[in-house]
Design a protein around this nucleic acid. Sequence first.
DNA 1: GGATAAGTGGGAAAAAGTGGTAAATTCTTC
DNA 2: GAAGAATTTACCACTTTTTCCCACTTATCC
Lengths: 144, 144
Amino acid sequence: MLIGEFAHSLDDKNRLSLPAKFRQEMGKKIVLARGLDHSVTIFTVKEWGKIADKLSESSMLQADNRNFNRFMFSGAVEVEVDSIGRVLVPDFLKKWGNLGTKVAIIGVQNRAEIWNENDWRERKAEVEKQADTLAEKLGQMGIL
Amino acid sequence: MLIGEFAHSLDDKNRLSLPAKFRQEMGKKIVLARGLDHSVTIFTVKEWGKIADKLSESSMLQADNRNFNRFMFSGAVEVEVDSIGRVLVPDFLKKWGNLGTKVAIIGVQNRAEIWNENDWRERKAEVEKQADTLAEKLGQMGIL
DNA sequence: GGATAAGTGGGAAAAAGTGGTAAATTCTTC
DNA sequence: GAAGAATTTACCACTTTTTCCCACTTATCC
């Protein structure tokens, strides 16, 4: 399971080193894709396969679906992890994620997300402010 | 699987180099066809075969189908990929796709599409604007 | 505090993408 | 049917980008 938060950097060649703790689970090939809220999602090849299957179930008869699938598939890329654990982030995903030099990589169960460091800090602060609501939710889920 | 987005150019001899990432999967022959929404579709010979089969299964008793089949078959060409990964885009497809010098080639799972760069940018922006739809769709698919 | 691993940065080699020239083929016209 | 023109095809060359490898710095672990 992918958990934790890591501050890494994206160098001027668009290289990003994956957190060492994630490497074993991720393997030597991963898929980067557009995620919610303008995050960039890191999937294992296997997890991405599931997503792709689901995407392709939607009917091509509807223009909405066609555009959505174009958006999702064209916004993904399979990349090799190099010998020291780095991957290349393509420009279109850098743009999508509003990524600069400093990024946050966070583990979210079966996937990881890459965020612009500032965006992530703000978002996190938002969530923290709502800690009470959070507790409530956990309660509803029967976790606490 | 064909995924990702690439900015390439169509030179004055109508030559278009295929993204290196697509070449292995595409092989040395591909099929170019009229795509939906005025895109130009790139199929592998194999994928085109599947499409052709499906088309020919549709009933010729219906005028709609007959016309659609005429449209699809007459608008498709099999082209050789040259020694350095380029193909020739025939004029009628260039026109159909409103293609100029700058084009975007996008991977959409089992096919690729060639777009006029600007048209694609606009279309993509449309989808991006609908952030709600994005979350909703992914939710419906059970992805999140 | 030393040793090991993780993360970052840079340079050289290789590949990808683009543009152009020359040869070959086709088409026209006489 | 032949000569010339025009188009197409094959090949070559250049530029930019990407890839691979090595080195350095920082952090972590014992």
